[in-house]
């Protein structure tokens, strides 16, 4: 499991990256993270939703309520243009951290 701090810091680029492919709703995002991390990253709702709301209030995400197949309403989040830019910035930062650690630990940098 990741530490709380690291999980918190990573939430932002991860959410932005997931939403950059297509709009999605909260629980689906959680599931995707869980799958991608192989269970290493597992957030509860009280962690995810506030982050989504904060990103929305910063203008990086938009949200809209949509009817799902089971007739329940779901709030879908999508990336704004500003969100796309922010994602690029985040990506650059995380890659530089990655590059430093990779060199220090003698790993081959792997470009995502």
């Amino acid at each position: 499991m990741l530490t709380r701090e690291l999980a918190g810091a990573a939430a932002r680029p991860i959410i932005l990256a997931i939403l950059s492919h297509r709009e999605n709703y909260g629980y689906a995002i959680l599931q995707r993270i869980e799958v991608l991390s192989g269970g290493e990253l597992s957030w509860d709702d009280s962690t995810l939703y506030p982050v989504l709301h904060r990103l929305e209030s910063q203008g990086l995400l938009t949200s809209s309520w949509q009817k799902a197949d089971n007739q329940r309403r779901r709030k879908y989040y999508g990336l704004t243009a500003k969100g796309q830019q922010e994602l690029a910035v985040e990506k650059q930062q995380w890659l530089s951290v990655n590059a430093v650690l990779a060199q220090l630990w003698g790993l081959k940098p792997q470009i995502a």
Partner: peptide, 14 residues
Amino acid sequence: SGSYISAETEYRKV
């Protein structure tokens, strides 16, 4: 889903 208490704290911040 997480506890009400932790959700309250996080939501309040945001």
